[in-house]
Design a protein around this nucleic acid. Structure first.
Length: 580
RNA sequence: GGGCGUGUAGCCUAGCCAGGAUAUGGCGGCAGCCUCCUAAGCUGCAGGUCGGGGGUUCGAAUCCCCCCACGCCCGCCA
């Protein structure tokens, strides 16, 4: 809804400008958006266009703003949502009218969980997580998975059809080492599969450093796996499946589901990799260096090796085949990758271009490290997501015990679980991807800070108002949902009410921003701000004890807030508890 | 050595791409608020050389250059 307000403000601005005759032929489309219209604490939408005009017209910005505004009357009359345009110093401020507040609530009620959708079309193949099947997911993978999952949810919200894929790197050296370890030392059957695998992997990695023979055996395994040796394939399967199903279990707990798991080895077995090599030889500069096949790429510090001298393929080549296949499945490809993949993903993009395949859009996120330094699966130096989940849920359970002794054990566990998962996801989602993170257990276990529980609590508060209202017969219930009464939105004139509606209206604006930038942290912030604004409303505006007409109006506002909070939480991959 | 990224109060973080109205919030600290819809809440106070230095501009956390610190990459690893 806020997007609509912005559009109307933009139309009004253009109209005023042309009526003012201040400048001819302004190339509107080329102006930076920030110069045109932005959110503002001083108005509903604000423009700093006057700064730009000032330099063209050689007049002070505030004069330009004043001149422009004198021609805004028609546009304001025409606009359904804007009631006033005012020059405040050099700024041109737009103020939403009564109708905007009314329309916002009306549309939330009408559209329900579709509110905030953008109606975009197209199919996106989104690859995320894709951790090596050599052990459990750790907090680094968690960042990938969280970013990917929130993006998938938001893109779907925006209207896209999204298929999420997990690329299973079953052909890498690491997996070979894990398979070797499993073969030599066995897998601890008492442990969760992925944890058993990493144990063997770590042990084998240590052995590898000491024994040349061990290294050769690992390489031999890789060759035989690529060749399809049935005995080796069977051993691989066991390790990879164990690791992968462990990871899937963890992801399920986090509310993350992939639509498809694609095994890297598939592209070797089905001949795609061979075909890619052939196509590249025909269309690009591929040379032989010491028996290996190398792709020369201009502008890169490093060439891309496509095939080892022993004839086996490399990660990049298989990834190339994977992307060529993926490109046919949808209109856009998005890959969520760690910073370490940046160079290789650029080389991949170039190689794809050579082959006439549109390259993926890449979302790069920076590393998650531990206070003691970087994580390493191979060295067994990492914090597993399973461990984190257990500890955070235990901390959440402590809090629930303290706050809600009235809950049944079952209820306590359920709420602790919802809060725990939310807290973990929020801590990751709130940070911009390009920012390096240091994982800190103490901070992760802090349930007091303004994270997911804060937003979930606001939702629970809204729910409990509606629940009590239903018990008093102020609202009707149907299928677990509430049917708020007819109401007069003009009664919602207090600043805390206005501020709340204004915030609710911004869901589409935030969804659009996340889709455009492919950065989920905007949504995390939005959830927090909506919760904050609701809490202020809660303080200032009694709902159940208000006069009946005002009560009805406020019940509608609470209902709409609950809807927006629930939808925001859902997009962040968090549950919205009715009580907590 | 080169490439990319990050550096904002004791700690974490938004804003940077598209320069403009008093730099966003949180944690921690201090002081208040439950006869009233869940205090996992609300209000106020303290705390800042926006890593450092130049430059561009009427105006720089934001753009440009240099430097410093940290991370990632620069494998016939993935």
């Amino acid at each position: 809804m806020f997007l609509k307000l912005k559009q109307e403000a933009e139309a009004a601005l253009r109209d005023s400008l042309s009526k003012s005759g201040l400048v001819e032929d302004l190339e509107w489309e080329k102006l930076p958006e920030s110069l045109l219209l932005e959110e503002s604490e001083h108005a509903d939408v604000s423009s700093s266009l006057a700064f730009f005009l000032a330099s063209m017209l050689k007049m002070p910005p505030k004069d330009a703003a004043a001149r422009l505004v004198t021609h805004a009357a028609d546009a304001v009359l025409e606009s359904k949502l804007i009631s006033e345009v005012r020059a405040v110093g050099p700024y041109i401020n737009f103020y939403a009218g009564e109708n905007f507040f009314q329309e916002t609530l009306r549309r939330i009620k009408e559209e329900g969980c579709d509110f905030g959708s953008l109606g975009l079309r197209g199919k996106i193949i989104l690859e995320h997580t894709s951790a090596n099947p050599d052990g459990p997911l750790h907090v680094g993978h968690l960042r990938n998975a969280t970013i990917g999952d929130v993006l998938a949810r938001v893109l779907r919200k925006a209207g896209y059809e999204v298929e999420t894929q997990y690329y299973v790197n079953d052909m890498g050296r690491q997996v070979a080492v894990a398979v070797l370890g499993a073969d030599r030392f066995g897998l601890d059957a008492t442990k969760k599969g992925d944890h058993a695998v990493v144990e063997a992997y770590v042990r084998a990695s240590r052995a590898l450093e000491e024994s040349e023979g061990f290294r050769r055996e690992a390489e031999d395994l890789m060759r035989r796996y690529e060749a399809g040796d049935p005995e080796v394939v069977r051993k691989y399967r066991e390790v990879v499946e164990k690791s992968l199903s462990g990871a899937r279990e963890t992801l399920t707990q986090l509310g993350i589901k992939h639509d498809r798991f694609v095994w890297e080895s598939e592209f070797v077995r089905n001949g795609d990799v061979r075909r890619v090599l052939k196509a590249l030889r025909e269309r690009a500069e591929v040379v032989e260096e010491g028996g290996a096949l190398v792709l020369k790429l201009e502008g890169f510090e490093k060439e891309l090796v496509l095939q080892r001298s022993d004839g086996t393929t490399l990660y990049s080549t298989r990834d190339l085949a994977y992307h060529i296949w993926k490109a046919k499945l949808g209109d856009r490809m998005i890959d969520v990758l760690g910073k370490d993949h940046e160079l290789v993903s650029k080389q991949l993009a170039r190689a794809l271009e050579i082959l006439g395949v549109p390259p993926p859009e890449v979302v790069i996120f920076e590393f998650v490290s531990l206070p003691t330094g970087s994580m390493s699966t191979r060295a067994g130096k990492f914090v597993a997501v399973d461990e984190l989940l257990d500890k955070v849920e235990a901390a959440a359970l402590d809090e629930v015990e303290k706050r809600r002794p009235d809950f049944s054990e079952e209820q306590k566990r359920r709420v602790a679980r919802i809060i725990g998962v939310g807290a973990i996801r929020y801590d990751i989602a709130k940070v911009s991807p390009e920012k390096p993170m240091v994982f800190d257990f103490e901070q992760a276990l802090d349930m007091e800070k303004r994270g997911a529980p804060f937003i979930q609590y606001a939702h629970a508060r809204a729910s409990s108002i509606l629940r009590l209202a239903a018990e008093n017969g102020y609202v009707q219930r149907s299928d677990g949902d509430f049917l708020p009464p007819d109401f007069d939105a003009t009664l919602l004139s207090m600043e805390s009410e206005r501020a709340l509606i204004r915030e609710l209206s911004k869901l589409d604006y935030v969804v659009e921003k996340v889709v455009r930038e492919l950065k989920p942290h905007h949504l995390a912030k939005y959830g927090r701000v909506v919760a904050e604004t609701f809490n202020r409303f809660y303080r200032d505006c009694p709902v159940l004890n208000a006069e009946p007409l005002l009560r009805d109006a406020r019940l509608n506002l609470v209902y709409c807030t609950k809807l927006v909070l629930k939808e925001t939480l859902r997009l962040l991959g968090m549950e919205a508890p009715e009580e907590m």
